[in-house]
Amino acid sequence: MAKHPETDLVPYLRGELPPAERERVARHLDECPDCRQDTDQLRELLGELSRSIAEPPAVNWARYRAELREKLEARRGRRAWWWQPVPLALATSLAGVLLFVAVWGVGRQVPTAGDPVAFEEAAIGRNLGLLEQYQVVERLDLLEEDLDFMSDLDGLAAGRPG
């Protein structure tokens, strides 16, 4: 005999099974007196339950809806002050600024006077914009070299060692 279709009995009694499954369960019930007895008890139980559904205590529906409106308003009010688009955008912006300051502050150490190399690097770092005019800077260097060369020539002409 096939496996007892225990979990199919409720849907079977409620007519929810597709035809093939229904047929299978019906065949099994023809052959299995235990399942037949179970099905009869189940039918009786479902009938008893349906006939004896208890009703909850009565409710004043107008008051119920008034309470609901109050709760809804209270919920809106609780969210309103910070959940509105403008405060939310402001809060987000402020958080962004604080984050930027925190990251920038940590990454940017102020050099001390006792560390001349770091101090110089910091000074160069502050004028990094000059690098955008790199060709001008390069020409200035060349000009400086030319001036040194001319100074040397002047020295030789005056009988001074170079």
Partner: peptide, 19 residues
Amino acid sequence: EATVRVHLHRAMNALKKTM
């Protein structure tokens, strides 16, 4: 759906015992 069937089956068994 299979889980619902199991829930119902177990519930009905418990209620049958009560009856």
